[in-house]
Write a protein that binds this DNA or RNA. Structure first.
Length: 278
DNA sequence: CGCATTTGACCCTT
DNA sequence: AAGGGTCAAATGCG
């Protein structure tokens, strides 16, 4: 098991380095506006980058955890639900199944670790419970627009690792017309990853919830940015106009490489639609 | 006064 | 029976 984790780590790092190198090459091509010809065309590079991200994500999903580090031991819940390792660790070594009751997981439920409980939606707290062996209570929220039929729920519990982060579980999608959640779709790396996941997996059957676990748990770097990739993100992203989103995508990817240069790269806006995928 | 939060009780699931 | 999830009355706040 330990060896597997190490191998996964190495593979992940390798893939990310490959992705970075390809992106740099692509950056150079874009500067020179060379989109084909040569040993590696822009499209080739794009495909390599996507492949790297795809492989990385596959590696991450195989870790089966919301944390960046691989779990010390396999943690599969008996009923196939994807609850965090932290939670399963708390459980005594399974005498019976009493107290194992969890809210049923649906297709559009997902976990995330965030620095703030703010996510751009209006929530109303409807309960708080002290959880067995948990240091902090769990708070229960429902969408303020419940009376309009919106069934979105979320649970918030502070992490016990000493940080000021929260474990947030979302249930259901917002069916209300909540404001402030349709802007800045790709304002941070989390949005970028969400986009990548949807884009890159559009032809596959990946579980969106499991993938969300990973992106959301791993990329929550800023404290002031809203997590508006909320429960509705999947539908939203796939239906969104790619002209705009792709621009942010590439800005995000390349901007991290050479911050001083990225402003020039998109003077001549290049959309992902300019390339042909599949 | 209207809305949000708190909190004890009850319900559901295992 | 026990723990987690939800309800709803009481309370607080602007």
């Amino acid at each position: 098991m330990e060896e597997t984790s190490t191998l996964n780590k190495k593979r992940l790092i390798s893939e990310l380095i490959k992705g970075r190198d390809c992106t740099k090459k692509l950056q150079n091509l874009l500067r020179r506006k060379v989109f084909d010809g040569g040993p590696e065309s822009a499209e080739d590079l794009v495909m390599k980058i996507l492949g790297s991200f795809s492989d990385s994500l596959s590696t991450l999903t195989s870790w089966n955890s919301g944390e960046l580090c691989p779990p010390p031991a396999p943690a599969t819940s008996s009923d196939g639900r994807t609850w965090n390792t932290r939670e399963s660790e708390k459980k005594p070594a399974v005498k019976d199944r009493r107290g194992c009751y969890k809210r049923r997981k649906t297709e559009d439920s997902r976990d995330e670790i965030a620095n703030t409980i703010e996510d751009g939606f209006a929530w109303r707290k409807y309960g708080q419970k002290v959880i067995l062996d948990a240091k902090f209570p769990r708070c229960y929220y429902r969408c303020t627009h419940k009376n309009e039929g919106c069934k979105a729920l979320k649970q918030v519990q502070k992490l016990e690792d000493g940080s000021e982060r929260f474990h947030i579980t979302y249930y259901g999608s917002h069916t209300c017309q909540n404001i402030n959640n349709t802007t800045q779709m790709f304002s941070d790396s989390e949005d970028l990853c969400s986009f990548l996941l949807n884009f890159n997996n559009s032809g596959t059957n990946h579980s969106s919830s499991s993938l969300s676990n990973i992106t959301n748990a791993h990329i929550t770097s800023s404290t002031d940015q809203e997590d508006d990739s909320n429960a509705q993100s999947d539908d939203y992203l796939t239906s969104r106009n790619h002209d705009t989103s792709s621009k942010y995508l590439w800005k995000g990817m390349i901007g991290n490489l050479e911050p001083s240069d990225d402003a020039d790269i998109f003077k001549d806006v290049i959309f992902m639609d300019d390339f042909k995928f599949q």
